[in-house]
Nucleic acid binder design. Structure first.
Lengths: 143, 143
DNA sequence: ACTATATAGTTCGTATTACCAACTACACAG
DNA sequence: CTGTGTAGTTGGTAATACGAACTATATAGT
């Protein structure tokens, strides 16, 4: 039951002890990644959440409520977030064609540019992290 | 130079475009992981940072300054963090044997218990995430 | 040994960001 | 056309992080 051979199945998920190393690794890596994103954001005077917002809106256009769902934040919080983003010229609030209550969010050119720039910088800083992952494995992960 | 065959080397790191999907995947996953840790923490009235602190002190005993380095936070911030953790009985400040300025941090039994409990709960919630990673690959990742 | 400088930690004031409750405006079912 | 639900905003509050100023201890230079 505690033999290493059992480690390949996934049914010990709620029986603590087995795959914990992998979990720890993933959690630790996640903190590293978030730290990178935070730092890149800070260099452009953007909060982590704002960076995330730009990343999300980069390839979609969403209503405010949908953005809140993506971010896992309250609508009131997102409302303020949009305020700040709008003040800096990254997004515009547009009227939704079909629903008069909704606000459609769209990145401006400046917003697109900042999103791309941020993404690039994040990719660069993550290279050291990714290099710890063997190339062959990286291919597999990329599905 | 931009052929897929070259994707296995890592020299395109600062030439944006190639491994971006993998980067995006990792960033997205990281946010998911942090959200899980945050939620588990919240259920025990602990901030993300406090959860992290317990996790770090679980197998080490550190000076406050070292903890600050681990967390990437200012010492003043960590001082307050320790206050809160101490008030809740998770850690104790001990005098450092060799350096009269330093504060040695040690988890109490209650702190150890909470750290373990949190870790277990996090592992459980991360199972769905990990199941998306094929078992064979998981073995590889575990090194 | 003595002074100067560096480091560890705390305190205090401030900024940011998130939440919740209350409110307005619009949508849509009956 | 009335009642209920949803979208978004506003205002008040709480939590957390930062930076500057300060105390105490350590260490290097002379």
């Amino acid at each position: 039951m505690t033999t290493p051979a059992d480690a390949t199945d996934s049914f010990e998920a709620d029986a603590p002890g087995q795959g914990d190393e992998l979990v720890d690794l993933l959690v630790q890596t996640s903190f590293d990644v978030i730290a990178i994103v935070t730092r890149v954001g800070a260099e452009h005077d953007m909060s982590l959440t704002l960076v995330r917002m730009l990343g999300i809106l980069r390839d979609r256009t969403l209503k405010a409520a949908e953005l809140a769902d993506y971010l896992g934040l309250e609508r009131s919080t997102v409302s303020g977030l949009i305020d700040r983003a709008e003040r800096r010229g990254f997004v515009v609030r547009e009227a939704h064609s079909a629903d008069g209550r909704s606000v459609q969010l769209r990145l401006t050119d400046a917003g697109q540019a900042m999103a791309k720039r941020g993404a690039d910088e994040i990719a660069v800083r993550m290279a050291p992290l990714l290099e710890r992952v063997p190339p062959r494995l990286r291919e597999l992960l990329a599905d």
